[in-house]
């Protein structure tokens, strides 16, 4: 059964990657990232059973902690950006390119 779980995990991970790439809403991108983290968790738990070692489950637990922290900070950033730009389209957030006029609106 192990291989099937792992394949499911890989498929989930790739779906998450696709979500990150095609979506423009940072909320959905975050969800896709959560999806990828869960895929990794599934793989960890699967390996834990296959090897008879609870270390995998402990690892999955730590991943959950990290995911929670990441979501808190990431969503706070999204709210902040929304407050200043009135938009959360990720294609509008091109300040880093440094090109003149790249920013969709002023951050001030």
């Amino acid at each position: 059964m192990t291989s099937e779980y792992l394949i499911l995990s890989a498929v989930l991970f790739c779906i998450g990657v696709g979500g990150v790439l095609i979506r423009r809403n940072p909320l959905v991108i975050f969800m896709s990232i959560e999806l990828m983290l869960n895929a990794a968790n599934l793989a960890l738990v699967t390996f834990a059973r296959a090897r008879g070692d609870l270390g995998g489950q402990a690892g999955a637990f730590f991943v959950m902690v990290c995911a929670a922290a990441e979501v808190v900070v990431g969503l706070a950033i999204i709210v902040t950006v929304f407050r200043s730009k009135r938009s959360i389209d990720i294609d509008d957030m091109t300040l880093l390119s440094g090109a003149p006029g790249a920013e969709g609106g002023s951050l001030a």
Binding site: V17, V20, L21, I22, R24, I90, D91, M93, T94, L95, L96, S97, G98, A99, A102
Partner: peptide, 14 residues
């Protein structure tokens, strides 16, 4: 390549 678009960067990473 440095368009400032996050998704192109992500594409390159993938």
């Amino acid at each position: 390549m440095q368009g400032g678009n996050v998704r192109s960067y992500a594409g390159v990473v993938v």
